[in-house]
Nucleic acid binder design. Sequence first.
DNA 1: TGAGATATGTCAACAAGGCTGACTTAAAAC
DNA 2: GTTTTAAGTCAGCCTTGTTGACATATCTCA
Lengths: 173, 173
Amino acid sequence: MSEPARLQRVPGDPTPGDPPAYDLIELFFFAYRDFVGDPDRILADYGFGRAHHRVLHFVDRQSGLTIAELLDILKITKQSLNRVLKELIEKGFVEVRTGTQDRRQRLLFTTAQGHELALRLARLQTRRIERALENGAPELREAAGRFLLAMIDPAERGEVMEILSGRTKEAAQ
Amino acid sequence: MSEPARLQRVPGDPTPGDPPAYDLIELFFFAYRDFVGDPDRILADYGFGRAHHRVLHFVDRQSGLTIAELLDILKITKQSLNRVLKELIEKGFVEVRTGTQDRRQRLLFTTAQGHELALRLARLQTRRIERALENGAPELREAAGRFLLAMIDPAERGEVMEILSGRTKEAAQ
DNA sequence: TGAGATATGTCAACAAGGCTGACTTAAAAC
DNA sequence: GTTTTAAGTCAGCCTTGTTGACATATCTCA
């Protein structure tokens, strides 16, 4: 509205002339809502919310990770994390052990109960994913993964790919 | 871990034996976070949040839609909607007109200013999408769209596809 | 025409889950 | 032995969701 028209497009430009990708924008919104909605119903039975789910998920996936590592993954403040983490510990879903090489660190683990819940929620989400892929070509799964990865900030991608490898951090204990 | 292995799978089964799709679960989480994070920074300049964005977006896309229609899309309570809608109206981003066939209804429209902001945010998100697709095969876009649509509850898909068509509702005025 | 249904608006209170800022403690590092 | 680091905590605030109750205007239908 206020910017002068340009005749050439510089690569990496805002490209205000392109029509917005309304379809993908809206699909992403609705799909994500349903995707996180599945676990919500189960979590409510335990008095947990989405924040608990995220913590439980990454603790289960990266057994033995520290508070600092978890904060880095979730990108929330330690005060926010502490509120939900405390509840997960009190209710016996997460366990804390003092680090051995560095005794200032707290290493986080899921308990048997915590692991079961994390797995149950992951399977629920997996079921939705499998149903989404079952009528597609076999390449659809790989395409979905490549698209989602490419949607992530380039600067974060390295870290995300490390997380995806799901390496446990138990070496510390 | 504790369940006996089964040799056959019933279609539509929980399939607890399948390994969870941790990669897609986590990619979806990180990708969506970055996707909605872009607009957040701009919205903060206006004193708006994500809730305002969603309202502004769908009002802009479905010019003339009613409160009831908007509530149905967003799936929040009218009290929640009203709080953000009121602010969008007060600040001159959304305009309300009384319905003509049914004068109980309120038809929602973006103002020029509101349309500009909606477009700016949509373009920002489109840029991320385009960058995600630019190094992929031309089929990647279509695959992403099909995957996301299939992730939505089947019962909702019809409604979502109507929304995607972006038909304006101005006939009423 | 009058009763009831419908669309919207509003008040009050509450909960989840983010945030900032300030401060403590224990352990490691130098 | 001082400084830095990892974690925990207190207090208060914001956004955005919730429930429940009730008001108003308008439409529908017997």
